[in-house]
């Protein structure tokens, strides 16, 4: 592997997970980050669901992007590029995909459905998933690259979520002053966590 490829790979993996962490550096997917981080168990479930959905949807949209949206077609002697439709198409594809995954899970793996079930509909309209997909298109990544990037981004999201939920479990035992209870202290904690993640900047 050449040095450049290695660096590229590093950016797709470590970079996606830590340096440009979806939640703590890009500030995407804040809603589930705050919403389902009360308990470690649900956070784990949510992380798993995000990893599955993000990777799958990135793989499929990357196929659409690389085979259709990216290309310029010559029809009637006119150059036509449907790239401007990408947001619409991605949303439709992601939503449909999540629906199908949900149904399939319920059928074939009830325990997994029980664990992930409630979270799947939440992810449908999650900006983190769309963000990952869009970032792939903006950076003009290939199918494999997109999938790797999304997988590690989702892993980073999961990491932040798990960290955060364990912190919140501890905060539940703390005597937080009343004005700061609940969402306020959660946001402060998230802020300090984001501050810590700044330390990774410059890694790649």
């Amino acid at each position: 592997m050449t040095q450049e490829a290695m660096l590229n790979m590093l950016e797709l993996t470590v970079g996606a997970m830590l340096v440009y962490n979806f939640v703590l550096a890009r500030f995407l997917g804040i809603c589930p980050f705050l919403g389902v981080s009360r308990k470690l168990d649900t956070a784990l479930g949510m992380s798993a669901a995000v990893i599955v959905v993000m990777t799958l949807s990135s793989a499929i949209t990357a196929v659409i992007y690389n085979l259709a949206l990216k290309k310029t077609f010559l029809i009637d002697g006119k150059e036509i590029n449907l790239g401007f439709l990408q947001v619409l198409i991605y949303i439709a594809v992601i939503a449909a995909l999540v629906q199908m995954v949900e149904v399939l899970l319920q059928k074939f793996s009830p325990p997994l459905y029980k664990a992930l079930g409630i979270f799947l509909p939440l992810i449908t309209t999650n900006c983190a998933v769309l963000g990952a997909v869009m970032l792939n298109s903006v950076n003009d990544r290939g199918i494999l690259e997109s999938t790797i990037f999304s997988f590690f981004s989702a892993l980073g999201f999961g990491l932040a979520l798990v960290l955060f939920s364990s912190l919140r479990e501890r905060l539940e035992l703390a005597t937080v002053p009343r004005p700061f209870q609940g969402m306020a202290i959660a946001l402060i904690t998230a802020g300090i966590l984001a501050m810590a993640f700044v330390g990774f900047s410059g890694l790649c």
């Binding site: 449909a96 629906q99 149904v103 399939l104 319920q106 059928k107």
Partner: peptide, 9 residues
């Protein structure tokens, strides 16, 4: 989706 829900729902 229809197919999936019909056969696997």
């Amino acid at each position: 989706i229809g197919f999936v829900s019909k056969f696997f729902g």
